[in-house]
């Protein structure tokens, strides 16, 4: 189980590197969306490993609301960049 966790963290590093390197703002947004869903799944995974209901609830809420929030952010950024 620990090995799976480490592989998940390494997978998390790829979009972080990509978000740092790429100059286009949409590539960055893609990386952020990927990271947010990955962290939520990681929280769920760890909560199930520890058999902890509280953290699992937090993970599910973050999964739902985080995605909705990034949709909002994408709309706002689109407004900003198209006006330029």
């Amino acid at each position: 189980m620990n090995i799976i966790l480490v592989i998940m963290i390494l997978t998390l590093l790829i979009p972080i590197y990509q978000g740092w390197k790429d100059e286009d703002i949409w590539q960055k947004m893609l990386a952020v969306a990927s990271i947010s869903s990955k962290t939520a799944i990681l929280i769920l995974f760890i909560s199930v490993l520890r058999d902890d209901w509280m953290i699992a609830i937090v993970g599910v809420i973050i999964l739902t609301v985080g995605n909705a929030g990034f949709m909002l952010l994408a709309q706002v950024i689109k407004r900003v960049t198209t006006e330029n």
């Binding site: 949409w26 947004m29 893609l30 969306a33 869903s37 999964l63 739902t64 995605n67 909705a68 990034f70 949709m71 994408a74 709309q75 950024i77 689109k78 960049t81 198209t82």
Partner: peptide, 16 residues
Amino acid sequence: WNTMLGYVLAYCSSSN
């Protein structure tokens, strides 16, 4: 949500 987020991101980036 992931499907919807994918759709919104595609719409935004392509219109840009």
